[in-house]
């Protein structure tokens, strides 16, 4: 590996493309990357086709980064294909790592999502009730679409993953460092989370914190938080205490609370549950009624605490009814 250039691939499954932009955001360091690496597959940035990958011998790609969760048949097909073609496969970003924003779909299912998107949402104008179909015949032949799954999975729940690089998106400095480490052949133990710290955000957070106690929750966009003081102390939910650091506290530095994209800490099984327990510990209530009243001021607790990690959490998804339909 020392002489030959590293063959690098980058692919996106169920993702927004932000991770690809983050890779470009390493700016001139991309030249360092190109100096040591050949980009053999990166459909977002260059013109590659699936048959190019299919044509590769197995283990042809030295390092393949995959962003995005797995939520349809195309995602699944491609990540399995890339696994076969890659020596080292690294989950890139929150969606691949723990499910990410697409993972919130696990609070619903395929049918209810279609219902909302194609029929019920206030902005939908669909008098004919048109919905996507997976196969459609036209004069030129048959058009196909991938099958959307009920449940969003992480990359690690679908294929064998060597490393996990968290973040929505990962911090560019961390990306460069990780590529450097792998290129230098100093890869960490298989299954490691790379490009992140082993401690929570509070370790790095520069804000002042005296005592964590609050009597109501405030929404960020309805307040002007003091940029020097811990968000939680100001009654704004910040999930930094249950989130790995390593991002360079970009949100907190912009006066936005941590939303948890770097995922749970090494010995934590369920990031959302952990943050919920920690928050519960900080509620300043004297009576059970008080507790209820304070908790009622929290909007969307499920979405807040499982914003990035629902598919990887112990919850995985909302429970279904016995007939396989969504439990209400």
């Amino acid at each position: 590996m020392a002489n030959a250039k590293l063959k690098v691939g980058m692919y996106w499954a169920a993702s927004c493309g932000g991770c690809d932009v983050a890779l470009l955001d390493i700016h001139e360091k991309i030249l360092d990357v190109v100096a040591v690496a050949d980009l053999v597959f990166w459909p977002c940035a260059m013109d590659f086709k699936v048959h190019h990958v299919e044509a590769m011998p197995d283990k042809h790609i030295d390092v393949c980064f995959i962003s995005g969760a797995v939520r349809n048949s195309e995602n699944e097909h491609m990540v399995k294909l890339l696994r076969r073609k890659s020596k080292v496969l690294c989950a890139f970003g929150s969606c691949a790592h723990i499910g990410g924003i697409p993972g919130l779909a696990n609070f619903w299912d395929r049918q209810s999502i279609f219902q909302t998107v194609y029929h019920a949402s206030p902005s939908t104008e669909n008098p004919k009730g048109t919905v996507p179909v997976e196969r459609f015949k036209v004069a030129e032949g048959e058009l196909t679409l991938p099958h959307l799954y009920d449940t969003v999975k992480t990359l690690g729940q679908t294929i064998d993953v060597d490393y996990f690089l968290p973040g929505c998106p990962p911090n560019p400095d961390q990306i460069a460092a990780v590529i450097g480490v792998i290129a230098a052949g100093k890869a960490p133990a298989k299954g490691s989370v790379v490009g992140a710290s082993e401690r929570a955000m509070c370790e790095e957070c520069p804000r002042k914190k005296t005592e964590l106690k609050f009597k109501s929750f405030k929404r960020r966009h309805l307040t002007h938080p003091d940029p020097e003081v811990c968000f939680m102390e100001q009654g704004i939910v910040c999930v930094g205490a249950a989130t790995r650091s390593g991002c360079g506290w970009r949100c907190i530095g912009s006066n936005m609370p941590c939303r948890g994209c770097y995922g749970p800490l090494p010995s934590v099984h369920d990031q959302g549950a952990k943050m919920l327990s920690a928050i519960a510990a900080c509620i300043d209530a004297d009576t059970p009624d008080d507790v209820e009243r304070i908790l009622d001021t929290m909007p969307d607790p499920a979405g807040t605490f499982y914003r990035f990690g629902l598919p990887a959490s112990m919850l995985r998804r909302r429970q279904r009814g016995q007939d396989g339909r969504e439990a209400r």
Partner: peptide, 15 residues
């Protein structure tokens, strides 16, 4: 407390 894991978030202090 496992020292290597503590981030000093202070959630435990008032409890």
């Amino acid at each position: 407390v496992v020292d290597e894991l503590c981030s000093g978030c202070k959630c435990c202090l008032t409890l």
